[in-house]
């Protein structure tokens, strides 16, 4: 989520995501960008997916060489699903860096509805982080979370664990019992060794 952090690995990964672009001008000798093209030159009007960092720099040129289209997860159909119930969407499959990429992509959205969708999705899916934190079935509850949501969950789990271990310590007989058990085992292991 750090837009200006040049050396941030996650930011590099985000800007490496591919976005669909339409080329507005003929580009000589750039045919290799389009894997399906047979010619050497890239024709105007070609639609291909290029990494965000490339798209951004081509877009900011004057005149712009490409027009950036929205990736499918930010399109109308998915926006409707996300606004209806964001918790049903498997972000791990559909958009690993949903929020981060969304921040970059929002300015290419003419109707500027992406921003509202991002916020709404985040608000709705906060519940999933909460439940993933306390869930015993950690694999299934963490699975549909996006990369940044997983990060959040991970740090929340650390707090949760620390608190529950603090609550258990002292008046819980289990701790001493297991310690004694370990102690005996250790002794037996030592006896077997000698």
């Amino acid at each position: 989520m750090s837009s200006s952090n040049y050396l941030s690995i996650s930011d590099i990964l985000v800007t490496n995501e591919k976005v669909p672009c339409k080329f507005l001008l003929d580009l000589p000798k750039m045919g290799f960008l389009d894997p399906s093209a047979a010619e050497n030159d890239l024709k105007a009007g070609t639609n291909i997916e290029i990494p965000l960092w490339l798209a951004e720099s081509l877009y900011t040129r004057r005149p712009p060489l490409v027009s950036v289209d929205l990736p499918k997860i930010y399109k109308e159909t998915y926006r409707e699903i996300l606004n209806a119930d964001a918790c049903t969407v498997d972000m791990h499959k559909l958009g690993q860096h949903f929020y981060e990429l969304g921040c970059y992509i929002a300015k290419h959205d003419i109707k500027s509805e992406v921003s509202a969708t991002l916020l709404n999705t985040y608000r709705q899916r906060f519940k999933m982080i909460l439940s993933a934190t306390v869930s015993t079935d950690s694999i299934n509850s963490v699975q549909p979370l996006s990369a940044s949501e997983r990060e959040r969950t991970k740090s929340a789990v650390v707090t949760e664990r620390a608190l529950s271990s603090w609550l258990k310590i002292g008046d819980c007989p289990l701790t001493t019992a297991s310690m004694i058990a370990n102690h005996r085992k250790r002794k037996r292991a030592e006896m077997e060794l000698s």
Partner: peptide, 11 residues
Amino acid sequence: DELHRIKMMTR
């Protein structure tokens, strides 16, 4: 924080 950042970046 993250909500705020999304808001600021998109705004």
